[in-house]
Amino acid sequence: MQPENDSRGSAPVWRTSGHAMTQSIDHQPVPGLAPQQSQAGLLEQQLRADIKRLNRFSNRGLWAFSLFILVSLAAWRYFPMLSLPNKVVAALGPPPPPNIISIVLLFYTFSAIILSLSRMTAGIEHKSSFCHVGYLTGFLLFYHFAKALDDNFWAVFGSGVTILSIESYRIWTFCREAMSRRNEQLEFLQRTGRMPPEDE
């Protein structure tokens, strides 16, 4: 499937089994737009859809943070929904020693912070927050099964708060900047009927 321009040379249109879907500014398809709409109206709708999507996306870090708090609460109560560590150890074999888990946690925290700061510097849109919640849950479970959660809970919690705070901040600032750019484009479009020239 390739995008093609409609007869008036307007924005690229995705043709999929009889339905026309326009492509948004950042290549996200926006459904429900008829090809006969004027180019300016089409662009305006795309920009509005983009702003809406960015607004939703800016809260992603906070949702991940909330999920991590919930997982941490369960860990604080020794994962009451899971079977006893002894049963799991009997079924799966012994977990790694707590010292090894701690070393891996330290390297993971360092790498995640560096990666997040690099993405912030490069201005890359990356939806990685929920992956970190998964990794951190893994660390909590490993400590739980190694019976070392008491000593290491706060280390995992601190690591999670740090990584997810930086990720939330990165996503939030990225979305704020992108939304402000889209708003400027929208204002220019409404004033002149065309898109502003692309910044280098």
């Binding site: 330290l106 700061l117 290491n152 708060v161 705070s165």
Partner: peptide, 19 residues
Amino acid sequence: PVGIAVTGFVIVCFLLLYS
């Protein structure tokens, strides 16, 4: 971001080392 990253990482190191 620098403040959060440095503070968080140092605190995590402290907690792990103490453990």
